[in-house]
Computed example of a mutant assay.
Amino acid sequence: MHEVADAVAAARDGLATPRGRLRIAAPLLFSQLALGRIAARFLASYPEVQIEAVAEDRLVNLVDEHFDVAIRINPSKDSALVGRCFAKDRLVLAAAPSIQMPKGDRDKPFPVPAVVTPSYRDGDIWSVRNGQFTIEPRPVLRLSSLLMVRDAIVDGAGAAMLPQSIIGSLLEKGELVSWGIAGDEVELWVLHTSRRLQSPKVRAFVDFMCKQYPNGSFTIPIR
């Protein structure tokens, strides 16, 4: 019914101007790193839209909870939602230069001190370089925030698997060293509930998100 009301309002206004409240659900890390600036830029282009963004990692129900769009990482392919991939990221195994890079292999993982998140399970093995290089994490810290993990390994606590987007500048400055890329690229999508009744504000936001990352890589906006 919200989509029908938006469609009727858009038809009445000539389909020209995005307006009204736009509710956005986004993962916590993406929200902390990028969504504030993106929302401000969008508002500058579309001043008649009022943005309400909710940052949390659970999968919200767009219809039941009255969200217009959601930012999701590697969304399920059987999802009823539609949308576009606007950027990609990748996981990097990294550590401070003071941590010696091991010389393990796939058959004999090398134990190293590690900073992990709650998703880590005892016995997990980290593999990089297409499986040719493996390590056995020995957790020394368990932290719930990837930004905390980043700060901990910069200070030499151990190695960690982190998105390239949040450590790229530290790798360039030599404060962290990459031990290799892990797995496939991570896709970031902007999703909505219906292509047929897509309102001007939703259509404008989807297009705007894709223009923020013209090279397809997720990078943190420069201050």
Rank of each mutant, 00 (worst) to 15 (best):
T193R: 15
M148N: 00
S145W: 06
G156R: 13
A152V: 00
H192S: 13
R142C: 10
L170R: 11
L170P: 01
V115I: 08
G183Y: 10
P137V: 05
V154E: 13
P113K: 09
S178A: 13
L162P: 02
D105I: 03
R129Y: 04
S119A: 13
R138Y: 05
A152K: 07
L143Q: 03
F133R: 05
L141N: 03
T193G: 14
M161H: 04
P113I: 00
V140P: 06
R106K: 14
T134Q: 15
V177S: 03
S194M: 08
R129E: 08
V115Q: 00
P109K: 14
E187P: 02
T193A: 14
I181H: 06
W189R: 01
S165M: 13
I153T: 04
P137C: 08
I166L: 09
W126T: 05
S127V: 05
L146V: 01
L171I: 07
V115A: 00
D155C: 01
P139Q: 01
T117K: 01
V116R: 07
F110H: 14
L143R: 00
S194T: 13
W179H: 10
R106P: 02
S119Y: 09
V186D: 02
A182G: 11
A157F: 09
S178T: 12
L143M: 10
D184G: 03
I153Q: 01
